[in-house]
Amino acid sequence: MTRNDLERALAELPFRLLRRLARSTVGPHILRSGKRRMIHAILAVSETNPERIDAAIRTARAEQQAIEAVPAIVPDADAAQKNKPVDLGTFLEGLGVPEPKPFVPDPWQLEALDALLQGDVIVSVPTGSGKTYVAVEATRRAMMEDRTVVYTSPLKALSNTKFTEFKKIFGPESVGILTGDRRDNPQAPILIMTTEILRNLLYDAAGGEIDLRLDTLGLVILDESQFLADPERGVVWEETIIFCPSQARLLLLSASIGNPQELAAWLTSIRPYPCHLVRHQHRSVPLRAGYLHPSGKLTPLFRTVSMPPSPSQAVLHPEAKRLFTQYEEDTLHTRRSG
């Protein structure tokens, strides 16, 4: 077989078999490269050891024929289509503004609101799925029962955003904000503050200073509760939860966390009523991941349009993989020479 014949024969092999061939003849390091690089590496080996390559190609072809000879096992066209890496067109498909739909609360949002009637609730859902709706509706319900609502966030900036937002929804007279050094409408039925301030209020109340607001407290919303694990400030969330008056319901809103059941079990163990956990991984707006090469070329990051469900099932798009490998090689090279 001449070199050209060999090259053609290799190029005709399915990529899977080519990989196996390259692995057995060149070595595992070649698997990171693309098809062309693999063929060149195999050809380089064939110059020193042609018999071995010939034998390997014969075995590979025999395998290929064996696979083709059993049509029943060949997956149907749909599955083959599915197995093919997604192309850029499909990847970008559906981009744009969705049809305006009347707002219908998600089942999990209603579940959280209903559960609040029975006890505390932890909501652990991906960012941007609509935790605010739960907070607003829960506040509305508590207001109807003439209960005070405290909404806490970890950052002043977030408190300010929520202050503006709640003033728009409930009217400026019914929303107040408390910061370390300032009180704005502090007798309002809805109070927005950082968690530290609420902790201090609870300590004052426990120390004997009577605060009417805490007596009528019906709902405490702790936004961004994943701050519980913050190395410096996490303790404040624990203190707040431990000293939260028993007549008030707790609503913990958090981004996706690893152990929400544990958190719920803890709340159930220390609070007078059971804690209900609402969690899901489903994003309301689906996410797709792309890879943008410094040259300006955009490709999908994964083989599939949607996100792989776990890291073990995450298979990079061949094009993204090739570009990234090439990028690493190039930058490594410039770094070495520069």
Partner: peptide, 22 residues
């Protein structure tokens, strides 16, 4: 997760994108 969570505005986008650039 927090970063990727910023992709896709509810009601304004039908798909959100997280683009990795090396």
């Amino acid at each position: 997760g927090q970063i990727a969570g910023r992709a896709g505005r509810r009601g304004k986008d039908s798909v959100g994108f997280a683009i990795v650039t090396p």
